[in-house]
């Protein structure tokens, strides 16, 4: 969906759902996700629909992901770090009806 205008930026290596990905130093996890080719970050709790980052300024809370073991972090507000493990959030197990 997005491409990098520069290919000479300094990079760090992160994993997204276990897949190794290069990210530019200083960018947000959401930016790295958008550049990775698959922008999906989570499934909604209500219907399980896929979502991707929407506002990238901390407002919409659509980019909630598990980052280094911590659930529901706003990927647009977290800067990438070498070795960071990012996971897409699955739909939470629903309550028994």
């Amino acid at each position: 969906m997005f491409r990098r205008l520069h290919d000479n930026a300094a990079t760090v290596t992160i994993t997204i759902d276990g897949v190794t990905t290069k990210a530019a130093v200083g960018e947000s996890v959401a930016a790295a996700l958008l550049a990775s080719g698959d922008p999906r970050c989570r499934q909604t709790p209500v219907s399980g629909a896929p979502r991707a980052p929407y506002c990238l300024m901390g407002v919409c809370f659509d980019c909630l992901m598990e980052i280094d073991g911590e659930a529901s972090r706003q990927a647009c507000m977290v800067t990438v770090r070498e070795g960071m493990a990012v996971k897409r959030s699955p739909r939470p197990a629903p309550m028994t009806p």
Binding site: M1, L34, P53, C55, L56
Partner: peptide, 20 residues
């Protein structure tokens, strides 16, 4: 996925030099 705000697109253009 694939629908974003214009401000969001500008945000990654500035901060990460990402473009469609």
């Amino acid at each position: 996925p694939g629908v974003m705000s214009v401000g969001a697109a500008q945000s990654v253009l500035k901060s990460a030099a990402l473009a469609p």
